[in-house]
Computed example of a mutant assay.
Amino acid sequence: MASPSADDQGPPTSARRERPSRLIDVGVALLLLVADAVIVVVAALLLVAVGLGTAPSPDSSRRVHSRDTPFLAWCVIWGTPAVAAVGAFVHARLRMPVTAVVQALFTLVCGLLAVAWTRMLLS
């Protein structure tokens, strides 16, 4: 039986990347989970604070509408879920399934918070 030619014996990593160890995947996922939780809590507190600050006074019969939300605010509100989605995609491509799931859930929560922020700012 003849051995395969030298051309057929390429390094195995050239066709497929090796995945990181499960321990590294879980460690990165835990670090990102803590960071994501802090981001979500701060965003939710800001949502409540800004929402209460813009609520009309019960004594006032007139409502003041402000449509001058800066473009940078919209970039932050909708950029955060976009960056989280890119992070989930990158971790999936790096073959880190636990981290990819954590980032996908963070993307979902960021999307819901972005919708809530948008509704509050446009009302």
Results as ranks from 00 to 15, higher is better:
30 L>I: 08
30 L>H: 06
31 L>K: 13
31 L>A: 14
32 L>P: 02
32 L>F: 08
33 L>Q: 04
33 L>K: 00
33 L>V: 04
34 V>E: 02
34 V>D: 01
34 V>Q: 01
35 A>Q: 10
35 A>D: 09
35 A>G: 11
37 A>C: 06
37 A>R: 04
39 I>L: 08
39 I>K: 01
40 V>Y: 11
41 V>N: 01
42 V>M: 02
43 A>C: 07
44 A>R: 10
44 A>I: 13
46 L>E: 02
47 L>G: 07
47 L>E: 02
49 A>E: 01
49 A>V: 01
49 A>D: 05
49 A>K: 02
51 G>N: 05
51 G>V: 04
51 G>D: 00
52 L>K: 08
52 L>A: 08
52 L>M: 12
52 L>D: 06
53 G>N: 02
53 G>R: 04
53 G>A: 02
53 G>H: 03
53 G>Y: 01
53 G>E: 00
53 G>S: 00
54 T>Q: 04
55 A>P: 09
56 P>M: 14
57 S>T: 11
59 D>H: 14
59 D>L: 15
60 S>T: 15
61 S>N: 05
61 S>H: 00
61 S>I: 07
62 R>E: 13
63 R>T: 10
63 R>M: 03
63 R>F: 08
63 R>K: 03
65 H>K: 14
65 H>G: 09
66 S>P: 05
66 S>I: 08
66 S>D: 15
66 S>C: 09
67 R>N: 14
67 R>L: 11
67 R>F: 15
68 D>Q: 12
68 D>L: 13
68 D>F: 04
69 T>V: 11
69 T>C: 03
70 P>D: 06
70 P>N: 01
71 F>L: 13
72 L>R: 15
72 L>E: 11
72 L>H: 14
74 W>S: 13
74 W>H: 12
74 W>I: 13
75 C>F: 09
75 C>K: 09
75 C>A: 14
75 C>S: 14
75 C>L: 14
77 I>F: 08
77 I>D: 07
78 W>T: 01
80 T>N: 04
81 P>W: 10
81 P>T: 09
81 P>R: 12
82 A>W: 08
83 V>H: 00
83 V>T: 09
84 A>D: 11
84 A>P: 06
84 A>S: 11
84 A>H: 12
85 A>W: 06
86 V>A: 01
86 V>Y: 02
86 V>D: 03
86 V>S: 00
87 G>N: 14
87 G>V: 12
87 G>E: 06
88 A>G: 08
89 F>M: 04
89 F>Y: 10
90 V>K: 11
91 H>N: 13
91 H>L: 12
91 H>G: 09
91 H>S: 14
91 H>T: 15
92 A>Q: 00
93 R>G: 00
94 L>H: 05
94 L>V: 06
95 R>L: 13
96 M>S: 12
96 M>I: 11
96 M>Q: 15
97 P>V: 14
97 P>N: 12
98 V>Q: 05
98 V>E: 02
98 V>R: 03
98 V>K: 01
99 T>S: 12
99 T>D: 00
100 A>G: 04
100 A>E: 06
100 A>I: 15
101 V>F: 01
102 V>C: 03
103 Q>D: 11
104 A>C: 08
106 F>D: 13
106 F>C: 10
107 T>L: 04
107 T>S: 05
107 T>M: 04
107 T>F: 03
107 T>R: 03
108 L>A: 08
108 L>Y: 04
108 L>T: 06
108 L>E: 01
108 L>C: 09
109 V>G: 00
109 V>K: 00
